[in-house]
């Protein structure tokens, strides 16, 4: 009951309620693991679905993720050691010249909520920095975002750079953002295109086999 309310609070984009409900649930000694999975994560995943169904848009997801984090921040110290076993390592960032990171941030929330280890390089990230990070961190997935037609070409540069440094075969590259699509992904030889944040999580699950 309490946990359902937490899920609903997130869907209703209410961070204060979420915080209160999580506090209450903890007081009632409900298993943090359950609060997280069935409340917070279930909520944010549903938001992801609503987003896919074009019922929610970016602002809604932003508020939902605030609500999510308001609960998550209370819970994570309690369960860190036990369950946050990382499924895979993801590097994410917005390509150079582009500062539109909201979409990327939404992906980050959902991916993080789904239990991945995520390294966020932020926005306007130079091509070199992506490549160097991949070389150093050896992630399983590189997730690239861009909102501008003019900057989407950078994705191509990054993939070419990975090839040159012989890093390409060990990593999956997924891309997203308003101007790109499956066609574009094929053209630049990305492994996958995610049309929205929820889609991105599904893709990551698929290509990392987890």
């Amino acid at each position: 009951m309490d946990i359902d309310k937490i899920k609903e609070a997130i869907i209703e984009l209410n961070d204060r309620d979420t915080k209160e409900l999580v506090a209450n649930a903890l007081k009632k000694n409900i298993d943090p693991q359950e609060i997280l999975e069935k409340g917070l994560i279930a909520g944010i995943k549903e938001v992801g679905n609503l987003f896919t169904r074009k019922e929610y848009f970016v602002p809604e997801v932003l508020l939902a993720s605030e609500a999510f984090y308001s609960g998550f921040n209370m819970i994570s110290p309690l369960i860190k050691s036990q369950i946050l076993k990382k499924k895979a390592k993801i590097v994410i960032g917005v390509v150079g010249g582009d500062i539109h990171d909201i979409g990327k941030n939404i992906v980050k929330v959902l991916v993080e909520a789904s239990g991945y280890d995520i390294i966020d390089l932020g926005k306007d990230v130079a091509t070199e920095k992506f490549i160097n990070t991949v070389a150093r961190e050896k992630p399983n997935v590189l997730a690239l975002s861009s909102l501008l037609t003019t900057t989407m070409m950078r994705m191509n540069d990054i993939i070419k750079g990975l090839e040159q440094r012989k890093l390409r075969s060990n990593i999956k590259v997924i891309i997203g953002g308003a101007p790109v699509n499956q066609d574009f992904a094929n053209k630049i030889k990305a492994d996958a295109y995610g049309k929205d944040a929820a889609d991105a999580v599904r893709l990551i699950e698929k290509i990392t086999g987890a």
Binding site: V180, F184, K187, I188
Partner: peptide, 9 residues
Amino acid sequence: FDTSKIAFS
């Protein structure tokens, strides 16, 4: 016309 197509097709 799809901009990614004009760039890559």
